[in-house]
Write a protein that binds this DNA or RNA. Sequence first.
RNA 1: GGCCCGUUCGUCUAGGGGUUAGGACGUCAGGUUUUCAUCCUGGUAACAGCGGUUCGAUUCCGCUACGGGCUACCA
Length: 510
Amino acid sequence: MGNSVRVRFAPSPTGPLHIGGVRTALYNFLFARQKGGSFILRIEDTDRNRYVEGAEQYITESLKWCGLEFDESPDRGGPFAPYRQSERSDIYSKYIHKLIESGHAYFAFDTEEELDQRRESCKESKDIFTYDHHSRTYLINSLTLSRQETEHKLRSGVPYVIRVKIPENEKVIVNDLIRGEVVVETNNLDDKVLFKSDGLPTYHLANVVDDYLMKITHVIRGEEWLPSAPLHVLLYRFFGWENSMPEFAHLPLILKPDGNGKLSKRDGDRLGFPVFPMAWKDPVSGEIFSGYRESGYLPEAFLNIMVHLGWNPGTDRELFTLTELTEEFSLHRVGKHGSKFDVEKARWFNHQYLQLSSDEDLYGYIQPYLREHSINPSKNLAVHILHLIKDRAFLIPDLWSQSWFFFIRPREFDNAVYQKIWKPDTAQTISDFCRELKEASVFNKEELQPFIQDFAARKSLKMGQLMNPLRLMAVGSNQGPGMIDIMLALGEEEFISRIEEGMIRLTSST
RNA sequence: GGCCCGUUCGUCUAGGGGUUAGGACGUCAGGUUUUCAUCCUGGUAACAGCGGUUCGAUUCCGCUACGGGCUACCA
């Protein structure tokens, strides 16, 4: 039990979770489930300045929509609670002091302004200022100050940060499950701030301490963390935790579909697809960002889209349930390079899942539209209609846009279609057809089709000459399933009524 | 600028020292459909470049180019 897999998803509540984050959460989830391990949510809210109201709730809700349930989280609790870093500050101060005692960290009193100034002046001489093994020898810190001076500053409340003291001339090896060995010279590392002047830790400290305390076995996170992984390895070493250090897996990033750079907040709506699982309203600006849920994607489809951005099963198979993904997933089959999002393929995935949906599900998806229009068809009829149109639907709203005319009589007729199909003798044909249809009493599955064929043959009509006008009047355009199916679904009375009304409007308006 | 990571069809990718470099989405062309869409069939299209190793390299190594990440008292 002591070595059972434990992974965490550790977002920072600075805004809505975007699809890169969802994918990271998904890979963590799949890995945990496959290994029979635990999937933990830890909120990394140590930056008060960037805290966004509602972000944490958004994260929880959107992952729930995806079907990713945590075993331990701020809401559910767990053996290592609390799971919000802002509630764990005592822990971090305790550990940072261990680092100071062992000489691996030191107090630094330089103000942000002073450091900014140095960065500025370095820029002029095309240099870069870093707080490192070199510059720490002339800056204001407990390494350059005497013990008494340091004590005095601390006692008199001078603001300070605590920095890691990176050793010189060493090589740090990060063993990455996806990338192999990554070797970095410590001389290229800087003395990162571990503990801020506001008394809270930075990511690096909090992350390492919590991962250790929470017995995390695998750190699966975005590639943006790869450059600081050597620092994390060093911290494990300084704390004496190297034996229980988690394994690392740095995931490739999701890139902008056009241009360059990693996908960002505004790319989606600019390029016509959501970057967020659910819609998000910025609490400050009021700006609204679209989401997959609201755009009509199914959670299963969304998950498949996400999982394939960087992973593949090694076979031609593309459609999986969450359970199947749990069985198939492997970090070894995660690629090394970033991938661009493809909306068309995303729509195709959703189309596939819509086709796989049960009648019950489809009926559920269309309810909001029926309610919105105060329509209350029998379930049998609704399901029958959904069967007729579902293969034309890519997103949930298509279910309605492809079926509304079964429920609502069209008020407008597509003029382009009218121009194309309406011929001088059409009106005569249709009224003959209507009259014969009413007299024949053949409005049923068996007889309707032969009746129509016979009528067309007797009048020497091509099917289109008869059916296209009927469709225009019954549906309002040139869309929809087979005309016979539409007629039968509408019923004789409604169908004939539509045709008669259509005839009046189309023949008088021109 | 420095450090690190990466590079197979337009996109997601399989593959890997000797292959007709495979699949999916898209696209194009046919077919089905009385319409539109779906669907079916077929086509199109890729190993970034240059060196090296090798009998042989797209595959291994190096360099270059390009792309990306990081370089905050943000995560």
